[in-house]
Design a protein around this nucleic acid. Structure first.
Length: 288
DNA sequence: CGGATTGTTCTTCC
DNA sequence: CGGAAGAACAATCC
């Protein structure tokens, strides 16, 4: 569920909480989550967190005085970060979490724990084990970065380039927008929301989308994600931020999860279909 | 119990 | 080789 706005929410919170902290220990509770790197603790010992960057849905941590050491963190479907005090309690939050998860960390879904010199700790929880936090060198980071297309929230987003590439694709517009190498950051929720705002049906062939429509799609992709960032992302099923709190963009959703309810524009019931292999929500009347 | 679930990557097919 | 479609990954919920 975490898409660009949720990852950005987590990134900003983590930056505030762990920048400058010294890692004194790493405990891997599940090897897969650490990329099967059994030396991760050794590699990170005494390293000081310098910055957290993000491209698309991928977070990139860098370290003081280390030009060739990075951590790549991807939440995939169910990844979460929790920052806790030495007693294992979430510092200042946790109100949105179910009781059993909030009570104490680490818990059964905790995959990796990072301990800091000031006795605080960061837990990476991931129920479905698709996410990861793994060590990477500069070349691997560069390779990962180069695999992403431009972000719709970028002030320098090139609409002409976006339109040209979009119209070359012979897939449903939704499939194109979900391709991170084409545009970075959109996932299932924000694609549906973007296409509703842009009044374009998700099943339309990308090659048949007009330049005017492409411009609208680019605009609303940026706008929905920027608005979502400003309210802490969307909680649909699993997302909570590093305080264990829900995102508030849920209140702004127009079509995602709204099947059967009236379209906010034309009152036609929103339908849910399968498109690009995903559950897809749209208005059959005002999205053409 | 069958089917669905937010993301990405690999395989298969054309 | 590239693009596109679908499976796979794993756990849980309804």
């Amino acid at each position: 569920m975490p898409e660009l706005p949720e990852v950005e929410t987590v990134r900003l919170q983590l930056l505030h909480k762990i920048k400058g902290k010294t890692i004194t220990g790493v405990v891997v509770h599940h090897n897969k989550s650490a990329g099967h790197d059994t030396a991760i603790a050794k590699k990170l010992h005494q390293k000081v967190i310098k910055h957290i960057d993000r491209i698309g849905k991928l977070m990139i941590l860098s370290f003081k005085d280390e030009g060739n050491l990075f951590l790549l963190a991807h939440l995939k479907m169910t990844g979460q970060f929790f920052y806790v005090d030495k007693r294992g309690s979430i510092i200042g939050g946790g109100h949105s979490m179910i009781e059993s998860d909030r009570a104490q960390l680490p818990n059964k879904h905790t995959r990796i724990t990072f301990y800091f010199s000031d006795t605080t700790a960061l837990h990476f929880n991931d129920m479905r084990l698709f996410g990861y936090v793994k060590v990477a060198n500069k070349a691997e980071v560069d390779r990962a970065r180069s695999a992403f297309g431009q972000e719709p929230i970028s002030p320098t987003f090139d609409v002409a380039d976006f339109t040209k590439k979009l119209q070359r694709r012979n897939t449903p517009i939704k499939a194109a927008l979900l391709d991170q190498s084409f545009v970075a950051g959109l996932g299932n929720i924000y694609v549906d929301e973007t296409l509703w705002h842009a009044k374009v049906a998700p099943t339309r062939s990308a090659s048949k989308v007009t330049s005017v429509e492409a411009k609208r799609i680019a605009h609303y992709a940026g706008e929905t994600m920027n608005t979502a960032i400003s309210v802490g992302g969307t909680t649909f099923q699993h997302f909570v931020d590093t305080d264990g709190e829900n995102g508030n963009y849920t209140d702004y959703l127009r079509v995602f999860g709204k099947q059967g309810t009236p379209c906010p524009r034309c009152k036609t019931p929103i339908v849910k279909i399968r498109c690009a292999g995903r559950g897809t929500h749209y208005c059959p009347k005002c999205q053409k």
